[in-house]
Design a protein around this nucleic acid. Sequence first.
RNA 1: GGCCCCAUAGUUCAAGGGAUAGAAUAGUGGUUUCCUAAACCAUAGAUCCAAGUUCGAGUCUUGGUGGGGCUACCA
Length: 620
Amino acid sequence: MNITAIIENGVINGVKNLYGEEVSPKQVTMNVTRKEFEGDYTVVTFPFTKIAKKKPDEIAQELGHFLVENITEINNFNVVKGFLNLSISDDFWKKFLLEITDNQDFGRQPANGRKVMIEYCSPNTNKPIHLGHVRNILLGWSCSQLYEAAGYEVVKVQVINDRGIAICKSMLAWQKFGNDATPESTGIKSDHFVGDYYVMFEKKFQKEYKAWQGSEEGMEIFHTKGKENQPEAGFFKIFKNTYFNEHSTLGKEAREMLMKWEANDPETMALWQKMNNWVYGGFEVTFNKLNIQFDKYYYESDTYLLGKDAVEEGLTKEVFYKKEDGSVWADLTDAKLDHKVVMRSDGTSVYITQDIGTAQSRYKDYGCEKMVYVVADEQNYHFQVLFEILKRLKEPYSDGLFHLSYGMVDLPSGKMKGREGTVVDADNLIEEVIGEAKAASSERGETAELPQAEQDEIIQKIGMAALKYHIIKVHPKRRMVFDPKESVDLQGQTGPHIQYAYVRVNSVIRKAHSIGLQRETWKSLVANYPNMQPIEKSLIGQLYRFPETILEAAEDFDPSTIAHFCYDLAKNFHKFFSELSILKAETEEARAFRLELCQSTANVLKTGMGLLGIEMPERM
RNA sequence: GGCCCCAUAGUUCAAGGGAUAGAAUAGUGGUUUCCUAAACCAUAGAUCCAAGUUCGAGUCUUGGUGGGGCUACCA
């Protein structure tokens, strides 16, 4: 049984024994003892004052005696201002240490037979991956790792928005202005190549629009449709969409292309396929650099017609209603949401209809009881509506729906804006952090004698750790400020700081072997180590909390908990490392114990960082 | 207008209603004959405002103030 559960039971029994009243586990408040006090766990006795009709200090004394007498794992206590600090016996900790040193899976739960689907990333095909996607990807990936560690089977999916007017814009620009250029012929990464044509379209369109604004037609429309006193610039800003749909030559061409696409025109389809493949090829390169995978891709071109059946079904079940013009709506006002259209009067579906259909078809594909959508918080309302509709349709998985809503990423200069060119591109960013790691590494020269390929791999791991950790350490819900300068920091609360703890362990173990020490020999001495130091106890205590930390993080969909756990552990390890000698310890037993402690710390750090998608180098 | 989210050192982040609000970074000062100084040690610095609930509030409630988001028969 878990030590916290043991203490909790002990306290409940103690209160019953001493004061004759039954308390619930909820009433037992327990924390890890603060490091300035002696002890491992602290019980707060204030909640029992009414029951015991005594002062907190008195209760703490009585309870402390009771626990020490009745629970073998507790061998000491002290009381400070009503806080009962309990000390766990060295034997308990040593036994625990010996249990985990050979267990590579420590912290992971056995398979529980349950299935969860996580959708994340889901980029647009006409824009390369940027910083916002990186946060999404890291959250999605680490949540999937967390759920696997918690015993679930995880299906990782993403939706590719591969159709619609936006895609036609880049196709059209390439067709008109591309002169048969290719990523190969230009040497541009293929997703960026396509993205460039999307930007080109927007530029050409702006130019066309600008010219039109000064034309007779443009001025006439401004004068007839513009409101009184409305400035010209303001009017034309709002009018842009209408211009695209009703007046623009380029807009007309793009819409014609979309119609050809919908009609399966062979030439259009071939172009569409060619350009999409360029995009996917480029994305794949970025995904590989980020070291993430997906089990299944859903393409909107396959799914955009889904959901029409659901509309019928909803009407039959009276979840939806039909207006006179034929459009179909859901009335969600009693759930404090608004009316929501699910089918237009012309019979075509809207975005949410597609989402309903996709959810249904995914459940058919995989039968997951939980479905998680990793999507930025600007879509909170959309997901509230979607989940409410699915619930009303009585979908079997509707209780397991979760929107992992995360805050957007800002720059020190403010919001990222595509139009103003302030978007941070993922490929550039990765290149930058790796460059920084390379510079720092060559300055240290610690790995200089290794083959170049190995050095490169190490640098790669360090750079990616800096970048990933910097993002994942922030609570998902929180809007975060991303300072590129800080993201390449390699010191302090960073990924490399944690990697360095792991590297130091490796180094010590290597040295131990090189002076002829054998694991089997030292392991047998651990149990005889007599006096554990406070820093050693606190390290073991941290290791002990690893499994529960994983479970909490999974339940809350919060990888930042793991990030903080790993940092605290690494920091404490560095302190331990500088305070105490390992290979030159006072006794053989002390050396043995510390080597085992090092090894376990390294194992936990590796597993923990692995959950965040961060790899550990053996040297650095 | 309505609904939702956020507010903590100069800055970037922590803190399941519990002790003296932790880190990192930037600043200042120190540590290497010994296991990798990407480390360690010391120093200084913060809960937006006002009420309320509680033995106890950064955390819960109400009201302000400031910031962000959503509120399409767009996707």
